[in-house]
């Protein structure tokens, strides 16, 4: 038992983003339907202003980066916490249509689950 405990860190999953294995279909879909998604520079203004983020793990700039990296599981888990208030869109310096992006993510995830 003791041995198992000391080596427990080995059981943790690899933190590395394995870019070659990730599926970036969501990014290519968004580039087609909402190309402003590409303009995000991950400045973090959306995260700072997000009311939902104050009470949950929702972090839009991380979602935006994860779209490009193909981290679909993370996005699917986090996106449900957004209540579409649109404050992120007001503050975005690059004028990314954040609400549009989020709605498109939801519709993509729903259709790909079918």
């Amino acid at each position: 038992m003791n041995n198992n405990n000391t080596l427990s860190f080995l059981k943790k999953s690899d933190r590395t983003i394995d870019y070659d294995k990730n599926d970036r279909a969501l990014f290519y879909y968004l580039m087609r339907v909402e190309p402003t998604v590409a303009l995000c520079i991950a400045c973090g203004a959306c995260t700072a202003t997000c009311p939902a983020g104050n009470f949950s793990s929702l972090d839009l700039h991380k979602i935006m980066l994860s779209i490009r990296r193909g981290e679909k599981v993370y996005i699917a888990k986090e996106i449900t916490q957004c209540f579409l208030c649109g404050k992120c869109q007001l503050i975005c310096p690059k004028n990314v249509n954040t609400r549009g992006v989020i709605l498109q993510i939801i519709s993509f995830l729903q259709s790909s689950q079918l």
Binding site: T16, I17, D18, Y19, D20, L65, R69
Partner: peptide
């Protein structure tokens, strides 16, 4: 290191 996500990244 993908410093904006705070995670290591590997690609070919």
């Amino acid at each position: 290191e993908d410093t904006l996500l705070g995670r290591p990244l590997k690609m070919t």
